[in-house]
Simulated assay, not measured.
Amino acid sequence: MTPELRSERLALSAYATADEADFVALFQDEAVGRWFGDGMQSAAEDRALFGRIFDLVYAEERFPVWAVRHEGRYVGHAEIKPSPETWLDGHEIVYGLTRQTWGLGLGTELARLLTSYGHESLGLTEVHATVDSENTASLALLKRLGYTQAREVPEENGRTTLLLTSRLQGPPHGSSPRVG
């Protein structure tokens, strides 16, 4: 269910149990973890989340979830999944990279790889991303990749989530994900 994907510098593969400490460290880094889901959680909650990847997502083959590696080292998390949001019918990409890799262009490479996988391998005409309106780096990255803002969603906490969409128009273009 979770195929291996490769880009020029990144290798995406299913998580191994040995990745738990790196996963938890990524989600516990406030600069990264604040943008995932409902924001920062305790380390125990992140360990439980990691366990659910194996117990639910992989066991029930729900959707692909990847450990992201650069030069053989864990550098991030990625997924493409049916949106849990009632106001969004479709699939969305989720990604995050360690702070140490910021500024190297790996975020753009990762989002491009996930978007290509959605369009080309899953056959999706639309691939979505939901992003906190204050996450300017992710918003700029997605707009560079051709995502357009489709909707603003006010949240109960006073924040705003933006729905961005990549629409496949004509034949796929760009570098396709290398599976395998």
Rank of each mutant, 00 (worst) to 15 (best):
M1H: 10
M1E: 00
R6M: 03
S7F: 06
A11H: 08
A14Q: 08
A16Y: 04
E20C: 07
A21D: 12
D22E: 13
D22K: 10
F27S: 06
Q28M: 12
D29G: 12
E30C: 11
V32P: 05
R34V: 04
F36P: 00
M40I: 15
Q41D: 14
A44G: 06
R47H: 01
D55A: 15
V57I: 15
Y58T: 15
Y58M: 14
Y58S: 14
E61V: 11
F63V: 09
F63R: 05
P64S: 12
W66F: 13
A67F: 10
A67E: 07
V68F: 00
H70P: 01
G72M: 03
G72A: 09
E79M: 04
I80W: 07
P84N: 04
P84R: 10
E85C: 03
W87D: 11
L88Q: 08
G90D: 11
E92C: 01
E92W: 05
L97G: 10
L97E: 06
R99D: 14
L104V: 02
E109L: 08
E109T: 06
L110D: 01
L113F: 00
E126Q: 13
E126G: 09
A129H: 02
T130Y: 04
T130S: 10
V131K: 01
V131H: 01
E134I: 06
N135K: 02
L141V: 07
L142G: 05
R144D: 09
Y147I: 11
A150S: 13
V153P: 05
P154L: 03
P154S: 02
P154V: 01
T160A: 00
T161K: 09
R167G: 04
P171E: 15
H173N: 09
S175Y: 02
S176N: 10
P177Q: 05
R178A: 00
